[in-house]
Design a protein around this nucleic acid. Structure first.
Lengths: 147, 147
DNA sequence: CATTTTTATGAATATTTATTCATTATGAAT
DNA sequence: ATTCATAATGAATAAATATTCATAAAAATG
């Protein structure tokens, strides 16, 4: 039961391929590890203010990709991140199992300048920064989110 | 059986109130004199590239109100307008019965500077222009469309 | 004008989406 | 920890929408 991550994943799916139906969306999410029923997706679609066109579901009109109704990254970090370590220009983030992918996607979306890119496994995210300094800056920013 | 006018009417309905469902749209159109089945509206909606949001149907994204797939005003004039007369700063346009309203709406949408406003009955449209000169200009422009 | 082709349409139906209802999880307050 | 309230969810179902199929009108063609 994890709404925030799932809804982020929904947006992510839309930004990539096209989604013709809720059943279609369901398959895409399954591949990303979210197993949910159609009813829930119908609700997510309403929550995220998506619209359906002749060519499938689309992100909301004016708003940027990350809709207005999304829980902030900080909330995700607090909930799913267990530990952060830096090594040179790299950060290694441990999450509860299964959450690394979606949390990494959320971090990506935040689009911070200190992040060159991310790779996520099952419970580990590797973040590449331009240099040691910026890695540390980013690390402390994320640590603050942990409360 | 009149697709062009009906589709224009659909856009017009959308620009005014909000439309929650195709059945809803069907009612609005009926009030404007278009009696069609749900299947046809489903197709119109596809043709016009409308999208459905949580708050009802919406005009297509980037495009202006008058979609891209619409037959030009000239086509409507050629098909439905019978006669044009000017009197001072006014134009009186006769159409085949029942078409005055939607043709007037289409003319309105064209948003020509010589048109201050329109009133349409069943088979007659009255167009108000700023002055005699512009009335004549507009009249000849429309006359040209008649072929 | 007769014939063929294309287009538009509605009724019936298939498919998709939203909602209801019951259940389970989550969190707060004591 | 227990109770209470709130939120999330799925299964079943209702409602809405898309499509199929048949038909009729309009347009093109000979």
């Amino acid at each position: 039961m994890n709404k925030s991550l799932r809804q982020r994943a929904v947006l992510d799916v839309l930004k990539h391929g096209s989604v013709a139906s809720q059943e279609d969306l369901q398959r895409h999410l399954r591949r990303r590890g979210f197993k949910v029923g159609q009813a829930t997706l119908s609700r997510d679609i309403r929550d995220l203010n998506l619209s359906k066109t002749a060519h499938g579901y689309a992100l909301p009109q004016g708003e940027n990709g990350a809709g207005v109704a999304l829980p902030p990254v900080s909330r995700l970090v607090r909930e799913f991140v267990l530990d952060i370590r830096s090594a040179q220009n790299l950060l290694v983030i441990k999450t509860i199992v299964g959450s690394a992918q979606p949390v990494a996607a959320a971090l990506d979306e935040a689009d911070w300048p200190e992040m060159v890119g991310t790779i996520a496994g099952d419970d580990t995210i590797l973040i590449v920064c331009p240099d040691k300094d910026q890695a540390r800056t980013l690390a402390s920013r994320i640590e603050e989110m942990l409360g």
